[in-house]
């Protein structure tokens, strides 16, 4: 088969070469894009590469990062979670209500209850999608509204502030010069990366997203996996809720509106397919960083926020376009 090829296709070596480049770009394109972006920004803004600025970027992306990691699990199973912003706001409110200075509660109480609030709502999503076969889009769209409603009911529409300093440390503290939210995001990222890459659960997530029927007929308990990814997303919303309340020193009932869009954007830019079964958590990390760096860079340059939205949207479309061309190549 290879013998005859040289005469029939004289361009073989050239196309082969080109193909190797596109292959590299599709595997590591997101990292290349990120580096290019950073180089451009450090040229046009002298402040960009400063240690403090880079820490700022990391701190700014950490909340979206935690949400996007949960979203990656969900999207890998062909699902979607539109309710992350609302679930985060609810968890923040629950946690803050037990973290006000004069409540006298030990720190563990708001932490546990905040995470539990997110987890509980995530479990509701999971049960409805996995057990009652409500389409994820519909279920989480419903939860988007329900969780926001719960937040207003729980808070009476009023913000909760005057939070205890130990709680605020979660959002504003530093450990050996690194902001605590960044450490939390890094820890979640490592855990998620390890889970997807090395555990049987991770393997099941890919299988369920790749072909749910084949997975079920191979003895995988598809509904259990489906339930789990929504529960994970909810739990991470709980964590993000703790982080945002601690970062802004208050739980605000309107916090996190439209955060699901940034989380989904990060996952999509990171190359995870909305059709499920394909994608990497490292991609999501860089998707999150790209969005963060763009926001930061345009702020540093004093560009209007209108352009930020334009640029972010364009990047999502280009990312998916690259993804498509990679699919049609193989």
């Amino acid at each position: 088969m290879n013998q005859a090829s040289s005469s029939a296709t004289p361009t073989t070596s050239a196309t082969d070469h080109r193909n190797r480049i596109t292959g590299f770009l599709s595997d590591y394109g997101i990292i290349v894009a990120f580096i290019v972006l950073c180089v451009i920004l450090s040229v046009v803004s002298p402040y960009f590469l400063g240690v403090n600025n880079l820490l700022n970027v990391l701190r700014q992306v950490s909340i979206n990062g935690v949400l996007a990691i949960g979203m990656t699990f969900v999207i890998l199973t062909r699902g979607i979670d539109l309710s992350v912003g609302s679930m985060m706001a609810f968890a923040a409110m629950v946690a803050a209500s037990f973290a006000v200075v004069d409540s006298g509660m030990p720190l563990i109480v708001p932490l546990t209850l905040g995470l539990a609030a997110g987890l509980a709502l995530g479990c509701v999503n999971g049960v409805m999608v996995a057990r009652f076969a409500i389409p994820p889009f519909v279920m989480t769209l419903g939860m988007l509204s329900m969780a926001r409603g719960l937040t207003y009911i729980y808070s009476d529409g009023m913000p909760i502030s005057s939070l205890s300093p130990s709680f605020l440390w979660l959002g504003q503290g530093m450990v050996v010069g690194i902001p605590v939210p960044v450490i939390l995001f890094a820890a979640v990222f490592m855990l998620a990366w390890f889970t997807l890459r090395y555990t049987t659960f991770g393997r099941y997530v890919y299988a369920v997203g790749g072909n749910p029927t084949a997975a079920r007929l191979s003895g995988i308990k598809v509904s259990r996996i489906t339930f789990s990814v929504y529960a994970i997303s909810g739990l991470l919303c709980g964590l993000a809720g703790l982080m945002i309340a601690a970062r802004t020193s208050a739980a605000l009932p309107q916090a996190g509106v439209a955060y699901e869009l940034d989380a989904i954007a990060a996952v999509v830019i990171g190359g995870t397919s909305l059709a499920g079964g394909k994608g990497r958590i490292v991609g999501t990390l860089f998707g999150v960083l790209i969005i963060g760096v763009i926001n930061n860079g345009l702020d540093l340059l004093g560009v209007s926020s209108f352009y930020q939205q334009l640029v972010k949207g364009a990047i999502i479309v280009v990312a998916v376009m690259l993804d498509r061309s990679r699919l049609s190549n193989t």
Partner: peptide, 12 residues
Amino acid sequence: AKSFSGVPALTN
């Protein structure tokens, strides 16, 4: 003749 990504699928 037709190749995909440099791999010939059809030569004649």
